[in-house]
């Protein structure tokens, strides 16, 4: 069985992510890492591998700048078998539509893939649309946003905790799946894993390798355009009171009444 895990390199959310002058996310000047939410996908890929006697290859796939190789490396340290990094000047500034195109072409090039596993959302863009777009582009069943994932012979079943109901969704492989942060803690790389990762293959693809025209991706051909980004003004400091013998409740109710909430 072949599993491809899509892992994204994102700016560290605790390091004040920001925009560049062209209104794209600054992916170079801010420290980055493997999107935390994609660690859950790597974990589930490894569990699928460990849950069967079959030969399973887990490939970590990323589309991103040079430093994005770090995201693949982290996945290799956790236990993925090999990595693929699609890197090309022309990709910079791509939106989800172009990103999903490049990912789909890379999945096709990797070949005979049974499961494409994604995170629930990238921690920077947070659109939560790439997995559905990948399923659409690849013409594969989509079993996404699983809080639990289970293999049943040639099928995968995921539990999906929706707004109004919890559902079980099932599809036959090959398919595209994504998992949420409820799917189970991701493992930390062990010392052995870190050492072993250094010897694992990491392949680089360019757009030409994938047969994607540079004119189909990147900022200039994006199907939507950011016109303006504004930093939110800091909130003005509020009033803080210490509760003493019930004074806190009285002050709180007074505040709510002054704002006409009661």
């Amino acid at each position: 069985m072949n599993i491809v895990v899509c892992v994204k390199y994102v700016p560290d959310a605790t390091a004040d992510p920001r925009f560049e002058s062209d209104n794209t996310v600054d992916r170079v000047g801010v420290d980055g890492l493997l999107s935390e939410l994609d660690e859950y996908a790597v974990e589930q890929a490894l569990q699928l591998k460990e849950g069967t006697e079959e030969e399973v290859t887990v490939t970590a796939l990323t589309v991103g700048p040079e430093k994005a190789a770090d995201a693949v490396r982290k996945a290799l340290q956790m236990g993925a078998d090999q990595g693929v990094h699609v890197q090309d000047e022309a990709i910079a500034g791509s939106d989800a539509i172009a990103t999903s195109l490049v990912l789909a072409k890379a999945v096709e090039k990797i070949g005979s893939v049974d499961v494409v596993l994604c995170g629930m959302a990238s921690t920077d863009g947070a659109m939560s649309v790439v997995p559905a777009m990948l399923a659409e582009r690849l013409g594969l069943p989509q079993v996404t946003l699983g809080s639990r994932i289970e293999r049943k012979e040639n099928q995968l079943a995921v539990q999906r905790d929706g707004d109004t109901a919890t559902e079980v969704v099932i599809g036959a492989m090959p398919l595209v799946a994504s998992v949420t942060d409820q799917s189970g803690e991701a493992r930390y790389p062990s010392f052995k894993g870190i050492m072993a990762a250094k010897k694992k293959p990491l392949e680089n693809y360019t757009l030409a390798d994938l047969g994607v025209d540079a004119g189909e991706v990147g900022l200039s051909v994006a199907w939507s355009a950011v016109e303006e980004t504004t930093e939110r003004p800091p909130r003005t400091a509020g009033e803080i009171v210490k509760d003493e013998d019930g004074s806190g409740a009285t002050a709180l109710v007074g505040f709510l009444a002054s704002k006409k909430f009661i």
Partner: peptide, 11 residues
């Protein structure tokens, strides 16, 4: 919520 973005679909 730290940034506000104005955007438009172009295609």
């Amino acid at each position: 919520g730290n940034y506000t973005v104005k955007a438009k679909v172009t295609k």
